[in-house]
Amino acid sequence: MGKTIGIDLGTTNCCVSVLEGGAVQIVPNKEGGRTTPSVVGFTDKGERLVGQIAKRQAVTNAANTVYAVKRLIGRKFKSPEVQRMRETSAFEIVDSPNGDARVRVQGRSYSPPELSGIVLQRLKAAGGESFSASR
């Protein structure tokens, strides 16, 4: 039977768990942390950093480090929530033809679910490594 996993995609942090023998176990990430910051950083070299590593370089690369993107999911650019976030975010939040809020990084525009997807991909990779190691 396949394993049951749970993912908490939080605004600030994410967490992956697995149901084993009736008990929930947290799956640690590659760095050994039980939670992974919901942060994606894009470097000048074209690297895509996710989680703790992205957070560590946020101060030096603020315009290209995206965080708390869950707050933008499903929101229109003109909504008060998005406008409020624009005032405090170091990264660029832009309008789109259908009125949804998007994030522009290094000249490319990303939808908020796309950025959350990048974090989820990393969680999935860490979870996959952990499962294959425990077999």
């Binding site: 950083g41 950093l49 590593i53 992205a54 560590r56 370089q57 946020a58 101060v59 030096t60």
Partner: peptide, 21 residues
């Protein structure tokens, strides 16, 4: 050279005395 795999930036300083990063 700043490497987020090993270092955590807590503050930056605008300067011409060192290479950026």
């Amino acid at each position: 050279k700043f490497d987020p795999h090993l270092h955590e930036a807590v503050v930056t300083e605008p300067t011409d005395d060192y290479e950026p990063d």
